[in-house]
Design a protein around this nucleic acid. Structure first.
Lengths: 222, 222
DNA sequence: GAAAGTCTGTCAGCGGCTGACACTTTGCAG
DNA sequence: CTGCAAAGTGTCAGCCGCTGACAGACTTTC
């Protein structure tokens, strides 16, 4: 059988499957950009690569799943970036720097594509919900790495989960304000994320926002 | 026209509408608890109050909307609780205490109902997504009150948004750990929320979670 | 080349959701 | 009270996401 072909005996069948799956993702995303998520039917996606709708659903359980397939790889890269930060960095600092490292490590074409996708699809509530859900599922894996780095047990110590949740939600506000600003420059998003993450320690502290204090605006825009 | 009839002219028609709407919500939630969210069809809900499915959708744009109607009132109460906190409390402290005040102000029957609902419905991903989405839409209104209390402009100062996002996401982790623990006691949820909110300042600080430090577990369980 | 396993298309159907149209009920005026 | 306009409702037909069942085609393996 000449099964010595690398490891796993890839087989012609599996190659076809993998290619079809990739075609579906590519075609689907293209159509989403052209006509919006809601405006694209699963039948169109299936037809665009020459298969039936039923086959589409044999590859993806839901239309949403195809959408999320595009960002899955990006998420993995972030975990690597976080693991690569030096061990003596405090947790939030490591997360903050990992965002930067991660962003730089994504190749520019993908980065542009993601910016464009965010711009076009940000108004579709179904897309936003899908992304949020994906983020939530991703949260556990980040918390796991945070716990690992800190040398604590996630099951007994809620701190990794608390920090991760706060971290991701702040990133969310940055994304939101970025898309609300109408900017399509991905670097603006990164800047907003950094600004807001750096604000976190001050914001959870008590040194602002009481009517008694009246201090002269510590650092609103800088 | 005799339009001087008070303001609004309740009219028999509007009363019927309001009652039907309430019936739909009540019947719908009861069915959700009995058969699950996914297991209940909009036709069943409509039939259970004697109207057609088409009429159901004239009252609620989506099945989800009916589900969220139940928690809408609770959200309003939280905003009131937050506004009622003394002005000299630091923002995070005010939010934390408002959670407690708010929980105490919800009448026990509603509280029990919500606990039961959370227990039954927490496994349905559609329900979780709906709740998350609702939370996100609610976030802006909380941030508005935080900004108001702090006397800053939300459009120019991201701090209210950052704090609110972190606050809500931490509440989310508390809810998750509560439902994962299998507890059905609503007070356990409140306790988890308080614990985790109190952890926030420490967690975003740099005093933990570096391999260099090796301090003896500051406060994992207390 | 045949048996066994896998992939696919077709068909039928459910549930969420919507537009169109006809019918009934309600509100208001004369 | 009567007649008219507005609003609410039921029925029907249909789109779209998604699924089970079955039969036919294609790989793999022997």
């Amino acid at each position: 059988m000449t099964d010595t072909v690398a490891s796993g005996t890839v087989g012609l069948r599996e190659r076809k499957k993998a290619r079809l799956r990739q075609n579906l993702v590519g075609s689907g995303l293209r159509l989403f950009l052209e006509q919006g998520y809601h405006g694209t039917t699963t039948e169109q996606i299936a037809a665009s690569v020459g298969v039936s709708q039923r086959t589409f659903f044999r590859y993806f359980a839901t239309k949403e799943e195809l959408l999320l397939e595009a960002v899955a790889g990006v998420d993995e890269l972030f975990l690597s970036a976080l693991r690569a930060r030096p061990a003596d960095e405090p947790p939030l600092t490591a997360l903050r720097n990992a965002v930067q490292d991660h962003w730089n490590s994504v190749d520019p074409r993908t980065r542009d594509f993601l910016s464009r996708a965010a711009t076009v699809l940000k108004d579709d509530p179904a897309v936003v919900d899908a992304m949020t859900g994906s983020c939530r599922r991703h949260q556990e894996r980040i918390a796991e790495v945070v716990a690992e780095r800190a040398g604590v047990d996630r099951a007994a110590d809620p701190r990794p989960d608390v920090l991760t949740a706060a971290f991701l939600s702040v990133l969310g506000t940055a994304r939101e304000s970025w898309s609300a600003s109408g900017s399509t420059d991905a670097d603006d998003l990164l800047a907003a994320a950094r600004e807001r993450l750096d604000l976190l320690p001050e914001v959870v502290g008590g040194g602002w926002g009481t009517r008694e204090a009246e201090h002269p605006a510590p650092a609103p825009g800088a």
